[in-house]
Amino acid sequence: MSTDNTHAAGTAHVAHHFKDATQQYESGKQGIWLFMMTELLMFGAIFVAFAIYHRLYPEMFAEGSKTLDWKMGFTNTLVLIFSSFTMAISIAFIQKNEQKKAIFALATTILCGAVFMVIKYFEYMHKFHLGLFPGNFIDVAKIGAEHANIGMYFGFYYAMTGLHGIHVLVGMGLITWVMIRTIRGEFHSQYWIPVEGVGIFWHIVDLIWIFLFPLLYLVG
């Protein structure tokens, strides 16, 4: 084990309780994946609730999804997929000691996150303008909805995209953090675990959106 340092060879960054860089790298990676599992389970439960009510009130969900603008959702999907790409190449750049390119890629990723949030903001504002609020605050008569429970659709819409949006913001913060550390020269071909961890988080956040988009915007 101690001789297999192909993943991460530098000894300067090994914390005191690890034997070597490999053990540290493998522990970190397992920890990140386990944490991602909890994220998936958390979103999993809300997907289950969505599935149950979608089965109970299919027409209501169809009516709700018509109010969403799939073009905006689709744009956001593209933006996030592109940001996943820039996130991934930033790690490759760090592994090749091309820090400048890596910083550029990370900055692009943050920018994509910001574009996503701005588009989301306009979508939200448009809904608010039309009076499409969650359950308690929606005036069914005023918006002329067919289904009395249409507020629940928007409950799901805001809860799911809101929770996802919070994750995007957290992800942007984390990417900023690893970008600053990259600028400081803390990451190089021997040490990049935090960047990879943040990258995995960002990909999972993207992945969740890739499920949210068809469920909310496209499935009638």
Binding site: P134, G135, F137, M152, G155, F156, Y158, A159
Partner: peptide, 9 residues
């Protein structure tokens, strides 16, 4: 969220 916004779930 149910208490604050009445999501309806």
């Amino acid at each position: 969220a149910e208490r604050l916004f009445g999501v309806g779930v």
